[in-house]
């Protein structure tokens, strides 16, 4: 049996759809609030975790594999194998700010973000002196309340930004999507199962 940690919420929904297109069904998902789901054939166990925690479960070996956004893997620099791009939950990592604010000539910025490491590295590269405010959600509020000049966050459709009067000023990473990751030991000790699953997933991906 393979134990796979998946970010609950939107990613979990897409992952379960992806799995069912490979013929792996999780019947409990719609009906129950269980955090551990078993596949119909009992070969796979999904653990629903907080997105930011996914790599921790995999790195520590509590889960054999995981499905996590590449943004989170970059932020955490997790010590796991990152084996496959699943092309689901696509988004990009952006710098955003109020529409009427130009960041072009700014030499210093206050930035609110869930991704302090990614933000720090980005502004180091662009040479902007930056103060980072680490928040854990609803980042869009920070510029509205004048807590920060800008935010660094993932953007999927841009709807939330638009409705809050913000717009994308710069793209840090394009094409982020959920990745299939594996614990370094599990990859070796459960290779046949993991390899098999990856083949199934990559075939589903092409269809």
């Amino acid at each position: 049996m393979l134990r796979i940690a998946v970010a609950k919420g939107r990613t979990a929904k897409e992952v379960i759809n992806l799995f069912s297109s490979c013929g792996i069904h999780f019947d409990d998902y719609e009906t129950s609030r269980k955090l551990i789901l078993k596949s119909r054939d009992k070969n796979i166990e999904l653990i629903l975790v907080k997105p930011i925690d996914t790599p921790v479960y995999v790195e520590s070996g509590a889960a054999d594999c995981g499905i996590a956004g590449y943004d989170i893997l970059l932020e955490n620099e997790a010590n796991v194998h990152i084996l496959m791009n699943l092309n689901i939950s696509k988004c990009k990592m952006c710098v955003a700010a109020k529409k009427d604010l130009s960041l072009d000539n700014k030499k210093s910025l206050t930035v609110a973000t869930k991704f302090p490491n990614i933000a720090r590295k980005h502004f180091e590269k662009t040479g902007i002196d930056c103060k980072i405010i680490h928040l854990s959600g609803a980042i869009e509020l920070a510029p509205l309340l004048h807590m920060s000049d800008a935010i660094v966050d993932i953007v999927q459709t841009g709807k939330t930004l638009f409705e809050n009067g913000l717009e994308i000023k710069d793209i840090i990473i394009n094409n982020i999507s959920a990745c299939f990751i594996a614990n370094k030991v599990s990859l070796k000790t459960n290779y046949p199962e993991i390899d098999n699953l990856m083949i199934q997933l990559s075939n589903a991906d092409k269809e």
Binding site: Y70, N79, H81, I82, M84, N85, C179, L187
Partner: peptide
């Protein structure tokens, strides 16, 4: 070392 196929891509 991380078999980071995604970043290799």
């Amino acid at each position: 070392d991380n078999k980071n196929i995604v970043a290799l891509n």
